[in-house]
Nucleic acid binder design. Structure first.
Length: 272
DNA sequence: CAAAATTCCTGACTGC
DNA sequence: TGCAGTCAGGAATTTT
């Protein structure tokens, strides 16, 4: 599923391809994808003619900045962006938005339609509910400590929710907690300094490694990069979707439970 | 059939 | 009592 490392991979691939280029036309084919009030009109009317300045990211949101509005893309659970250099390939099913760039087009394809695309003058208020970016916005363990101690909530809902730290989904949440040696149900305001440091290092390391490996593609292949290639991080998962398998660190059986409404995988011996 | 995933919404509960 | 913070649960969707 597209979480921070997958979105960052798309961002890095996309920016050099479209920066400085003019968007000639926008086709909005799926109403649910442009579900925000006025989204369809803004995309179709204001974006054509604009030149792309940069492609940024906050959490799981992609921000395509132009000389006028910002185009915001969220991949949801099954959204994919595909770059087609000559625009000639037939469009696959569930193609909901197409940005045409003279030769070449960028397609937003999303079977389950949880994803979203809209254009706005200023992305800040739209993304105001998000916490700091998990990859770029937590500069020190003390910054993380301040976030954790401001709340009194269990680590899993805190990391999975986007309002404190933005970007982690179920996979990287469980992997980060395993790497930190912390249980999902530990309360955020009970961590010692040493534990906060472990969590900080774990989050940076897991996300960094996952970005380097170009993200995780599971069996359902919901995530593919701009060119349709899978990511390579899945084989590095230590706990996610490994219920019953021996822990790679200690040999104990990986357990699965439910927390924050999601399957939660952890090692009962390594994590406390 | 159930399960997976993300975000948003609502209802209920907790602590102050 | 009221309020803010927090969590569970449900909806939307399609594929395996």
């Amino acid at each position: 599923m597209p979480e921070l490392p997958e979105v960052e991979t798309v961002r890095r691939d996309l920016e050099p391809v479209i920066a400085g280029r003019r968007i000639d036309a926008v086709e909005v084919l799926g109403a649910r994808t442009a579900r925000r009030p006025g989204a369809r009109e803004a995309l179709a009317a204001r974006v054509p003619g604009c030149t792309v300045a940069s492609v940024d990211r906050h959490g799981k949101y992609l921000l395509v900045r132009t000389d006028d509005p910002v185009v915001v893309v969220h991949l949801g659970m099954s959204g994919q962006l595909r770059w087609v250099p000559d625009g000639s390939e037939p469009r696959p099913p569930h193609t909901h938005v197409v940005f045409r760039f003279g030769p070449g087009e960028l397609r937003f394809v999303d079977p389950r339609t949880f994803g979203e695309v809209f254009a706005t003058d200023d992305a800040l208020p739209e993304l105001a509910h998000l916490g700091v970016d998990a990859y770029t916005g937590v500069p020190s363990w003390k910054a993380l400590a301040a976030i954790l101690r401001r709340r009194r909530t269990m680590l899993k809902p805190l990391l999975l929710g986007q309002s404190a730290v933005a970007g982690l989904g179920n996979i990287y949440c469980d992997e980060t907690l395993f790497a930190a040696g912390l249980r999902h149900d530990r309360r955020s305001d009970t961590l010692t300094d040493a534990e906060v440091r472990r969590l900080h290092r774990a989050m940076a390391r897991i996300l960094g490694d996952a970005v380097d490996a170009r993200g995780s593609t599971l069996d359902d292949a919901q995530y593919r990069d701009l060119a349709g290639r899978p990511g390579g991080y899945r084989s590095n998962h230590r706990v996610y979707d490994r219920e019953g398998e021996p822990c790679s660190a200690c040999g104990a059986r990986i357990q699965r439970t439910y927390a924050a409404g999601r399957s939660t995988y952890f090692c009962p011996r390594c994590q406390s």
